[in-house]
């Protein structure tokens, strides 16, 4: 996976990603307001396939799955952060949005191009030339991401059972 980096700081919480006042909207409309708390232009800047890079405690706060879903709908294809809040982390996998914990996010610049290989556990910043490795994801999570999230995985399992 390869994409352009949009870089933000620590504690990008769920109220920043999808503010409560927009929770009545559809995911597509919510995406237009994504990250409004820190960047009003986020939606217009992001192209499909781009990568969000944050600092510590990314996705803290609410269990609102609208946060990763709106980011995905805005075009984000992966999130790299120093650390994640646990519900957000789990939500990302469940909706098929890969996320990666990487302590070195300070070295990655806004606008850089990142190349991520989740199976081998490698990230390369094509602008700085720096390469990083991370513990590859457990197979069950890789399978879920490959399927496109929990629902797609359940659907595949159901179809397999039906074929037998």
């Amino acid at each position: 996976m390869r994409g352009t980096v949009h870089k933000y700081g620590d504690n990008i919480n769920t109220d920043i990603i999808t503010p409560g006042k927009y929770m009545e909207l559809s995911i597509e409309d919510m995406a237009r307001h994504a990250m409004e708390g820190v960047d009003e232009d986020f939606y217009s800047k992001v192209k499909p396939g781009d990568i969000l890079v944050c600092g510590k405690n990314c996705g803290s706060g609410s269990s609102r799955e609208t946060a990763p879903r709106a980011l995905k709908a805005a075009g984000i294809s992966a999130i790299v952060a120093k650390s994640f809040a646990r519900i957000f982390y789990r939500n990302c996998f469940n909706i098929g949005l890969p996320v990666l914990e990487l302590p070195e996010t300070d070295e990655i610049g806004d606008g850089d191009t990142l190349d991520i290989n989740f199976s081998s556990g490698e990230v390369v910043d094509l602008d700085s030339g720096r390469a990083y490795s991370f513990a590859p994801l457990p197979q069950r999570l890789l399978d879920m991401l490959d399927a496109g999230g929990l629902v797609a995985q359940l659907e595949q399992e159901k179809n397999r059972r039906g074929e037998k």
Binding site: S63, E65, I87, R90, N94, L150, V151
Partner: peptide, 13 residues
């Protein structure tokens, strides 16, 4: 503990 909506879908099933 809190979970997301899709996680809940899995729990319901």
């Amino acid at each position: 503990t809190g979970i997301g909506s899709t996680e809940m879908l899995g729990v319901l099933i």
